[in-house]
């Protein structure tokens, strides 16, 4: 650690559970924030400011105006450009701390790419907006013995739990199956920014403890809070469930791809097309689609609006089709305008 770093992190070094040795550990650590919305924004910002060595941000989405109320990393300019969240986050975080290696990855985390994307990561924190990705993360954590911190928020309510493989239960021990049917999400129930911040703060404290190896300091509970109803709950999660598919039977249904994520983006009136694995030429698309509707693009996303649909295409061919929840219709729109 040089003099500048010593000054920069001085208040954290003064904190008795971190110190200079702890700061050195943080500076040598590699962490991933998976999903960069309300939770992920806060997590990424805090981790970068705390001085982790390397931060990976994985997100599949782009910035919209309705995100700005709670997704504190982004600004109006990002929304106006529909920048991918991972791209915008990377830029803002570099401004916050140029000493951290920040890497934004625009991708939907799937069974196929998770091992490559999260390789070499010491711990990861949950900022996702859906259950399926969380079960995938849980599978990956258990299989590879990497700790992670589950967290979620909706309305004024939030929940978090830290999963340390081999020590206590995993997410699937407590919740063996993702909830079926229609789920409440931020897009249907709304969300108070303070609820997300509260959960993200607890998650980040847990990640710091994990990175420092201070496992005795982990809260060890299934924590929940409601910042409006003023309820704070700490439930003892007990021992791993004897018949847990993930951590006892080691059947990784999500990691093997037998339980694939749905294409519908819950509550968003959108469908994600992610089975395409073909680079898209934005220049060629622009020429072809300009006569048919409104076209906008930057190096990271291409947006084509043909009322009532808006198609957002990423360079790797993935697309988010807004205006329908019907995957068949979304696929046919994709084939018609972007390519079969």
């Amino acid at each position: 650690m040089d003099a500048r770093e010593r000054e920069r992190y001085s208040r954290q070094i003064l904190y008795r559970h971190i110190g200079e040795t702890g700061q050195q550990k943080l500076l040598a650590s590699r962490v991933a924030v998976v999903g960069c919305g309300a939770l992920g924004s806060q997590q990424a910002s805090m981790l970068v400011r705390a001085g982790v060595g390397e931060l990976l941000i994985v997100d599949r989405d782009y910035v919209e105006e309705s995100n700005l109320q709670r997704q504190t990393l982004f600004d109006e300019n990002d929304a106006a450009q529909s920048l991918p969240k991972a791209v915008a986050a990377e830029a803002h975080l570099r401004e916050a701390n140029s000493g951290v290696k920040v890497r934004g990855i625009v991708a939907d985390l799937t069974a196929e790419n998770i091992a490559e994307i999260l390789s070499g990561i010491h711990a990861f924190v949950d900022g996702t907006d859906n259950f399926e990705t969380r079960y995938l993360l849980n599978d990956f954590s258990v299989q590879n013995n990497v700790s992670w911190v589950y967290g979620a928020a909706v309305g004024s309510y939030g929940v978090t739990m830290t999963i340390v493989p081999g020590s206590g239960p995993c997410l699937a021990c407590l919740f063996p199956e993702p909830p079926s049917g229609i789920n409440t999400t931020c897009d249907t129930e709304g969300i108070i920014n303070a609820a997300a911040s509260a959960v993200a703060s607890i998650q980040v404290a847990e990640i710091l403890k994990l990175l420092l190896g201070d496992h005795n300091a982990l809260h060890g509970k299934l924590l929940s809070l409601d910042v409006w109803e003023n309820r704070f709950q700490a439930v003892n999660p007990g021992k791993p469930a004897e018949d847990c598919q993930a951590c006892q039977k080691r059947e990784f249904a999500y990691l093997s791809g037998s339980r694939a994520a749905p294409v519908t983006l819950c509550g968003r009136n959108s469908v994600q097309i992610h089975e395409r694995k073909r680079a898209v030429d934005f220049g060629e698309l622009e020429q072809r689609l300009k006569p048919l509707g409104e076209v906008r693009s930057n190096p990271f996303v291409f947006q084509f609006t043909i009322a009532p649909y808006q198609m957002t295409i990423f360079p790797d061919g993935r697309a988010i089709i807004q205006g329908t929840t019907n995957p068949g219709l979304a696929r046919s729109l994709y084939a018609r305008y972007i390519g079969a």
């Binding site: 999903g35 919305g37 309300a38 939770l39 992920g40 949950d126 900022g127 996702t128 907006d129 859906n130 259950f131 969380r134 967290g151 979620a152 928020a153 909706v154 309510y157 939030g158 929940v159 407590l174 919740f175 063996p176 993702p178 909830p179 789920n183 409440t184 999400t185 931020c186 129930e189 969300i191 997300a196 299934l222 929940s224 709950q233 439930v235 003892n236 999660p237 007990g238 469930a241 819950c266």
Partner: peptide, 27 residues
Amino acid sequence: IVRREHWAEVELRDQDRLEIVHFVGGG
């Protein structure tokens, strides 16, 4: 904590204390 598969067997008694945590997915 009481795992789901045991819920049917557990009979509640007067003054039992329950904590119910909701599994939410937003983020």
